[in-house]
């Protein structure tokens, strides 16, 4: 018996040690950042990294002296609006590609796929001119309108709509449901999970936008949080690391919480193509 368990035990200890060390390495930037956010800036500047003068002063400063809450609020508005819009418009397009028969359907779907080859980053110049001509600069709309739909979303939902049982469609035909009713009452509820996954993706995608808002927002009233943090760093000419780390913590902690809760849905979205 000893012969069997001993290598197993040492093997386990080795596994746990390795896991712990790797986890610590991955978490190190978080931990270092979090720790410095509690230190007075003077202590950081002098290199007293192990100072015991911890306080919440940096957080108080961040909340009272910077518009960090406003930035968070802006991002929340933009991301929520983008998410809702994509859920509606992507599912509508996917519905058309799956349940409607019309001329040029294949061609149009090909066009949708083709847009995935065109990086938005390479189109910022004309897009800037477009939103300028539309009078959208420095507003929430400028960060939502170009992203009302996404070819990726259409593609993903189409895949999952096609996996619906044929009986549902037959039942709907028997009941005499029109397209709008069938779409609203059956297709959407049936595909809740992929919709949820798309929602999570579009929300996070909008939340992480960086280049576009940087070009199109000029005041703190509309600036989302990613650019807000950049703004704070460039505005703060002193090495106020404590407060900067505090703002980073304020931004990252809610995201982490939401992510750990919603993790399951990202995984299912990616691995199963949101089929089930």
């Amino acid at each position: 018996m000893d012969i069997v368990t001993k290598p197993k035990l040492s093997r386990r200890i080795w596994d746990y040690t390795l896991l712990t060390v790797l986890a610590l390495i991955i978490l190190a930037p978080f931990l270092i950042g979090l720790w410095t956010s509690f230190l007075p800036t003077m202590q950081i500047a002098q290199g007293n990294f192990l100072s015991t003068k911890v306080s919440l002063q940096n957080y108080i400063d961040a909340f009272t002296q910077t518009p960090i809450l406003r930035y968070l609020g802006n991002s929340l508005v933009i991301s929520t609006a983008t998410m809702i819009a994509q859920l509606i418009f992507c599912s509508m397009s996917a519905y058309a590609f799956v349940f409607l028969k019309f001329k040029g359907r294949k061609f149009l779907f090909g066009m949708f796929l083709a847009t995935m080859m065109l990086p938005f980053e390479a189109e910022i110049i004309p897009n800037f001119q477009t939103v300028k001509a539309l009078g959208l600069l420095n507003s929430y709309s400028v960060m939502v309108i170009p992203f009302l739909t996404s070819a990726f979303g259409v593609f993903m939902l189409r895949q999952s709509f096609m996996q619906m049982p044929i009986e549902l469609k037959e039942a709907a035909d028997i009941e005499g449901l029109g397209h709008f009713q069938f779409y609203w009452k059956m297709v959407l509820p049936y595909n809740r999970i992929p919709l949820m996954t798309l929602g999570a993706y579009s929300f996070l995608g909008a939340w992480n936008q960086y280049l576009w808002p940087m070009l199109t927002t000029f005041s703190n009233d509309f600036r989302p949080v990613q650019n807000g943090l950049r703004q704070l760093q460039s505005e703060e000419t002193f090495n106020d690391w404590g407060m900067i780390q505090a703002t980073a913590a304020i931004v990252v902690i809610p995201t982490l919480i939401v992510l750990f809760i919603g993790q399951h849905y990202f995984k299912s979205g990616v691995n199963e193509g949101a089929v089930k």
Partner: peptide, 12 residues
């Protein structure tokens, strides 16, 4: 952003 994202897994 989903507009720039890529399609879903081959296992889908």
């Amino acid at each position: 952003s989903p507009a720039q994202s890529t399609p879903t897994s081959p296992l889908s």
